[in-house]
């Protein structure tokens, strides 16, 4: 934890070195995240079997499927909260299976959770500051003596405030999370993930529980993140309209296996997708 994993000059990485807006979604973009042959078992239950997916740079990839299809398990395997029994996960050339959950933020991967996993005991801005934990460098030796704590605190506060400003919720920055409306809390969680300027943003059902208007705003925001910051996104989502609107590529899971994948317009009318969601006609 004491090592400087990522310099503070991260901000100088200009967005325009990333794929230009028009080309962002093109399948020719280089692959950022590769999951191959992933198998996960919980005791006797096989949650995932031989699942593969790819997220290309500057692309929004949606992972869909009925409840229990293993989307969240696949997600948790990538963020190293679940240990697969077989398979490979590579992020930008690095073998993620050799990394610990706490290392991912420094590698450039951030995520949100399906059921908000904020810390109610901290204020909104403090939540986002913990999201920026990996940018800090106060170590266990320095903290007791306060070495660099003050300047780091100032910088992390500024970074967190800037992330809140992107989501237009900076006016609740110093309030406790408790008691804020759900839509605002979703944005706090998004700000917490964004504050490190990740390259891959993983969102687990970001539209769940949002009003129709909020979902529209979310779609606009996610597209802006892709086009302007060059972020790659992997999202698990049930809100089909959102997925079809913004995704560049869709991967469908069913009962822990790859069912099909393709561009939204390619899979939209696939009978297998309809069957997975609605069941086969008798």
């Amino acid at each position: 934890m004491s090592g400087i994993k990522r310099s503070f000059t991260l901000k100088t990485r200009p967005p325009d070195t990333d794929p230009a807006p028009g080309t962002a979604g093109s399948p020719s973009g280089e692959t950022l995240l590769t999951v191959r042959g992933l198998t996960v078992r919980f005791g006797g239950v096989t949650a995932l079997e031989d699942v593969s997916l790819q997220v290309r740079s500057g692309e929004i990839c949606a992972l869909i499927g009925p409840n229990g299809a293993g989307k969240t398990t696949a997600f948790n395997s990538v963020s190293r909260l679940v240990q697969p029994v077989a398979g490979a996960i590579a992020f930008d050339g690095a073998d993620l299976l050799r990394a610990r959950a706490g290392d991912l933020a420094a590698l450039g991967i951030a995520r949100t959770f399906q059921n908000l996993a904020l810390w109610p005991g901290l204020t909104v801005i403090e939540n986002v500051m913990v999201g920026a934990h990996s940018l800090g460098r106060t170590g266990f030796l320095g903290a007791p003596f306060g070495w660099g704590v003050r300047s780091e605190h100032r910088e992390l506060t500024e970074r967190a405030y800037a992330a809140l400003a992107v989501l237009a919720i900076q006016d609740v920055a110093f309030q406790p999370c408790q008691g804020l409306p759900f839509g605002t809390l979703r944005r706090v969680e998004l700000a917490r993930a964004l504050v490190t300027r990740p390259r891959l943003l993983m969102l687990d059902e970001p539209a769940a529980g949002l009003t129709q208007g909020d979902v529209r705003d979310l779609g606009t925001l996610l597209r802006a993140l892709r086009d302007e910051l060059g972020l790659s996104l992997l999202l698990v989502e049930h809100h089909m309209q959102l997925v079809m609107d913004i995704a560049d590529y869709v991967v469908v899971l069913d009962s822990g296996r790859n069912l099909l994948s393709g561009r939204p317009d390619e899979i939209r009318d696939d009978p297998r997708l309809v069957e997975a969601y609605l069941g086969s006609p008798r």
């Binding site: 959950a101 933020a105 106060t138």
Partner: peptide, 25 residues
């Protein structure tokens, strides 16, 4: 007051998301 103090509160309240945020739990 340091980032370690904040990460203590985070891992008390939701250890998984603390780890996902880069805290070495």
């Amino acid at each position: 007051r340091s980032r370690i103090g904040r990460s203590m509160v985070a891992l008390r309240e939701a250890p998984l998301s603390a780890a996902a945020s880069g805290v070495q739990v």
